[in-house]
């Protein structure tokens, strides 16, 4: 696979604090790479270093095979960025905002007009073209923010937490749009601390904590790093303690928790754990209203590797 980004031994310090610590990774053409980590883990700092916005202490960054510098205009032409903060002009309406930022890349007016309309359609702002940012909801504003960053059809797109504080409808719309961009040939670096999003759209994941990579690979590969195999949740009213003790002794059970009439059971391994549990509940005539099984999530992996939750 062809490298679009190649980062080697990247280190960035703020005085004594290492924001990025000897980071090395690659991003391949046509993939969505998820850069996952809690707040303050170094995701945005990494992006800013990649874009030459920030000085860094050590390491090399190559984009499209060339060293990235502030004056690398040929590389910049092919890059689109959606920052975590909303970066639009309050004084311009939706279409003017997109047209302005697109105009920094595309000179030809006709081409630009088409690109602007494509971007509006991609993020679903067709009905809001003449709206000003202050007239848009948080979700629509995020969509505008994305449209401004990708309207020029870049080959490489950085999306820095684009769905923060967004309603579910807008989130789905944004995630669908990102997949569409990948399908159209763009390479995407997607930073977030929402593991559900990563599981939905990312081809590969890099988990960062305290500026270092603690896990990387496809989502399945990363999940295998967790020691648990399955999580079962049962909604059951007034479960007696004696049953709790018996469940703990069932085959493959690692941990049992009962809280607010919800029973959580984690299994270290095994394949028919759910069937075995249902059989046990039936035999003991324990009534339950809901039961479901889950694979471990990226958050479980992160919790196991760092001892804290991704959203901490």
């Amino acid at each position: 696979m062809k490298n679009v980004i190649e980062v080697k031994n990247l280190t960035k310090k703020y005085k004594e604090l290492k924001a990025i610590d000897d980071l090395s990774f690659e991003v391949y053409e046509g993939e969505i790479l998820g850069l996952l980590g809690p707040n303050g883990s170094g995701k945005s700092t990494t992006i800013n270093c990649l874009l030459s916005l920030l000085n860094f202490n050590k390491g090399t960054i190559k984009i499209f095979g060339k060293t990235m510098k502030p004056s690398s205009y040929d590389i910049k032409e092919k890059i689109g960025v959606v920052f975590q903060d909303i970066a639009v002009f309050e004084e311009l309406n939706v279409i003017d905002n997109i047209n302005y930022f697109c105009g920094l890349y595309i000179k030809d007016k006709d081409t630009r007009k088409k690109y602007v309309l494509d971007a509006i359609n991609l993020v679903g702002l067709e009905n809001y073209k003449k709206f000003y940012p202050k007239q848009l909801s948080g979700g629509l504003l995020r969509r505008l923010n994305i449209a401004c960053g990708i309207a020029h059809k870049p080959k490489l797109i950085f999306l820095d937490e684009p769905t923060v504080a967004v309603d579910p409808q807008s989130r789905n719309n944004i995630l669908e749009g990102i997949k569409k961009l990948r399908d159209e040939g763009s390479t995407i670096v997607y930073t977030t601390h929402y593991m559900e999003e990563v599981e939905i759209i990312c081809d590969r994941v890099i988990i960062i904590d305290k500026g270092s990579i603690i896990a990387s690979g496809t989502t399945d590969e990363v999940k295998h790093l967790a020691s648990i195999e399955e999580k079962v949740t049962v909604e059951v009213v007034d479960l007696e303690n004696k049953y709790l003790e018996e469940i703990k002794n069932l085959k493959h059970v690692d941990e049992v928790k009962y809280d607010n009439n919800i029973l959580f059971i984690t299994y270290k391994k095994g394949k028919n754990n759910l069937i075995d549990l249902i059989d046990y509940l039936k035999i003991n005539k324990i009534n339950y209203t809901k039961i479901f099984s889950e694979r471990p999530t990226l958050n479980d992996v992160f919790l196991e590797l760092t001892g804290k939750e991704l959203r901490d």
Partner: peptide, 24 residues
């Protein structure tokens, strides 16, 4: 300020565009 990356998010967006700084 609208053009400076350290002053506004719009500035960051303009900074990473291929338009030369002196022009903007």
């Amino acid at each position: 300020n609208n053009n400076l990356a350290n002053m506004s998010s719009k500035g960051k967006r303009i900074f990473i565009s291929p338009t030369k700084k002196y022009k903007t």
